[in-house]
Nucleic acid binder design. Structure first.
Lengths: 216, 216
DNA sequence: CGACCAATTGAATTGATTCAAGGTCCGTGG
DNA sequence: CCACGGACCTTGAATCAATTCAATTGGTCG
């Protein structure tokens, strides 16, 4: 079993394919990689914002809570994603490891051109979040789930077998649903022959067209 | 009645109080102000993204549509707000005048430091949108409406009389509701003595604490 | 095996929507 | 000046999608 909490691991060089993130790495003092075991907090709402974070492996959820405990996950960050960028000097969201994640801390070495690199990243994130607004505000449970599966499938780039590093409650809080509804929608998809569910954390997409039809 | 469409008006200097926007203005060639009458499009999804826009007066809605016509308004922009910033070279959203708006076009004169200024703006917008995600995903109709009223009230900075430049359908599409629900929630607020409704486009907030209690 | 946590499934409930009238406001033209 | 038309808003009743509540099943670890 994984050790609890966060601890440093070997600082192997990042193999990041995204050119924008590579550009960012070139402008940062690369920190050590820390391992955060499943469920642990990387930073919390209100913590001072001092660095950026790069996901080396694993999955991170970025979330916010209402006073009475309802949670909204604003994004999942996978290997190669950068998170922790904030408008102010404290974090507005909490970042938690979903499944055991290796996180590299990036301390910006203040150069010219750094803002430009960061801007590109921020704008890209911005675009994704705007798409998520449409999903949360105007799509039903089936459409939300279809969108989520396609997002993961594209991200993982594979043959159609999608790995779910997060549990049902996380998916629910990302899509603005309950975990029971997530479960029910998956069953409906299975009954319709759109997916099969070889195990609880893997989904095999059999009919991409059906999912595409749902999202648009 | 207003002339249809967009036409130039006198290029009086902007009186913008926000320091970040002022900084941006200093790094841009200030374009002319165009007047866009109510309901007209400033730019549409897919249009090439070539400039930034500053709201001089009036209100602008930024929105996205699903294929079957459902609409999500991602933000309202009021006087002093900048919009039109995009990750790619085309607009991902549509911008429309809500009530007749004066819009100044800003062409970035490419200087050092421009990215930094823009980054600050983008991050601020980013923070607001993230808050909106929580609202759309995890709040009920009353809480959404309370949040919206407080947002407008703060923006207008006044005594508690809030002006609504947009109609019910716009509010609904911003909050992920139907216009009927917006209407009903306002009635409930009135019945509870939280607001009074002197006219259809003005809301007088009588009990800010009640609204605060709803949003958090 | 037994305990525990996650996921599934069913049944009842409910918050918001849909559908359908009315009502209000405002500008236009007789 | 008032009647008319149209756009927007309000309100009510019925419906429905998703939630809530409650078991039950499945999987994992000590």
């Amino acid at each position: 079993m994984f050790h609890q909490g966060s601890f440093p691991v070997a600082g192997t060089p990042s193999a990041v394919s995204d050119p924008q993130v590579r550009a960012l790495l070139g402008k940062c003092a690369p920190g050590a990689i820390h391992f955060h075991s499943a469920g642990t907090t990387i930073f919390a709402e209100g913590d001072p914002s001092e660095a950026l974070f790069l996901v080396e492996f694993g999955t991170v959820r970025i979330c916010r809570l209402t006073a009475d405990g309802r949670r909204q996950i604003t994004s999942f960050c996978h290997a190669g994603d950068v998170f922790g960028l904030e408008a102010g000097d404290v974090h507005a969201s909490t970042a938690e490891s979903v499944d055991g994640a290796g996180i590299r801390t990036l301390h910006p070495s203040d150069e010219a051109g750094f803002a430009r690199t960061l801007l590109a990243l921020a704008l890209r994130r911005f675009a994704r979040i705007q798409a998520h607004l449409l999903l949360l505000g105007r799509r039903n449970a089936n459409e939300k789930m279809a969108s989520f599966l396609l997002e993961l499938a594209e991200r993982q780039g594979g043959d159609g077998v999608v790995h779910l590093p997060m549990q049902r409650a996380d998916i629910a809080d990302y899509l603005g649903l309950t975990f029971e509804t997530v479960s029910r929608v998956l069953r409906v998809f299975k009954e319709r022959g759109i997916v099969s569910l070889p195990s609880v954390d893997r989904i095999m997409v059999l009919d991409f067209d059906a999912l595409d039809a749902l999202v648009d």
